[in-house]
Design a protein around this nucleic acid. Structure first.
Length: 361
DNA sequence: TATGATT
């Protein structure tokens, strides 16, 4: 599938109005201008982890149902993920299911947002505003009220201190149309909100990609170093350092000593290691378990490329186990250390690297 | 109940 397909389709789709039939017996519904109507199948996914790849993205959303096309949006020049993407399902029911099961999923330090995509057009681009100098007492609702006089607000957010939860006086407002955002800048930039002592600054928000290399590394350090907050021993800390260096320099720096000592101690072959990543065996899942539970369990620990619940062919119920593939050894090891013995419902999970039993004496 | 593979 051409990855540009969604974008090019959306750019020609200027209206989300009533759909008309294509005229063919089983043809897809067409909108007024003749473009395919994706309004019930096409989703936008926001707040993806920076390091999530197109393959991981497709694997995550492909676990819901058949995908017509999907695209992780990247910076044209640097190739960096912009942290959002589009998924167009074949079946509108799967799009609905994806929203219900994957919206709010925690992946690494992010909580992803899954919603129907608005039909794209030039007029809705660059409609996101950065607002600073807000009174700390101003709520999101109050900020929306201030801006709503200039147009329809699609999303809004006020950033808060991670520790205290107090407003940082900084927020974002996304309008439906760029011209509405332009009017809001004219009307509100440098103005004092009612009762405020300081004027606010209103300007167009930067693209998430427009970070310098330094800022990117700094961000990488923060997200990596803060990822796990549980008790840590020395070896774990070294894993984290290795991982940071892996990510910063884009190379694999697995420590042969560490892996050899672990494997020989365990007395088993690790077959989790392969070009596709590290395969993890998860035991004691309930018969009702599905792929989304594995994404939810393992996603917070790092890059997950694939999950699989093993089901009985006849009943389609989970046979009590599944597999998860993770890209990075350190993250896989952390997930195993954290999730082995974890209580899921009334079951205690047993989690380990997948082992080979083929050549056991 | 304990290591897949309807690709």
């Amino acid at each position: 599938t051409n990855p540009n397909q969604i974008i090019s389709t959306m750019e020609t789709q200027v209206s989300n109005g009533p759909t008309s039939n294509s005229g063919l017996p089983n043809g897809p519904p067409l909108s007024a201008n003749g473009a395919a109507d994706d309004s019930k199948t096409n989703l936008i996914v926001n707040y993806l982890p920076q390091n999530m790849t197109q393959e991981e993205f497709k694997s995550l959303f492909g676990s819901i149902g058949e995908i017509e096309s999907c695209k992780l949006v990247r910076d044209k020049i640097t190739g960096q993920s912009l942290g959002y993407g589009f998924v167009n399902y074949v079946d509108p029911n799967d799009a609905d299911k994806a929203i219900n099961t994957l919206n709010g999923l925690k992946l690494q330090m992010k909580t992803i947002k899954v919603s129907y995509a608005r039909p794209s057009s030039a007029s809705i681009r660059d409609a996101n505003l950065y607002v600073s100098g807000l009174p700390k007492s101003m709520s999101q609702k109050e900020m929306e009220q201030l801006f709503s006089q200039y147009g329809r607000i699609i999303t809004s957010r006020i950033l808060v201190d991670q520790v205290t939860g107090v407003s940082r006086g900084v927020g974002f407002i996304r309008f439906d149309k760029r011209i509405e955002a332009e009017e809001a800048i004219k009307g509100l930039n440098g103005q004092k909100p009612l009762g405020a002592s300081e004027p606010i600054t209103v300007k167009f928000a930067n693209n998430p990609s427009q970070k310098t290399g330094q800022a990117l590394l700094s961000h990488l350090y923060q997200t990596t170093a803060r990822r796990y907050t549980g008790p840590l021993h020395h070896q774990t800390q070294r894993f984290r350092l290795d991982n940071l260096l892996n990510m910063a320099y884009g190379v694999k720096r697995f420590s042969p000593i560490t892996i050899d000592s672990m494997t020989s101690l365990a007395g088993v072959n690790l077959t989790g290691a392969s070009s596709g990543g590290w395969c993890i065996f998860v035991y004691n899942l309930s018969p009702e378990a599905d792929e989304s539970v594995l994404w939810q369990l393992f996603g917070p620990f790092g890059a997950v490329t694939n999950v699989k619940v093993i089901r009985d062919f006849a009943t389609n119920k989970c046979k009590g186990f599944g597999f998860v593939t993770m890209t990075n050894y350190e993250e896989a090891a952390m997930a195993i250390a954290s999730l082995n013995g974890y209580r899921l419902g009334d079951r205690i999970l047993q989690v380990s690297f997948k082992t080979s039993k083929q050549h056991k004496p």
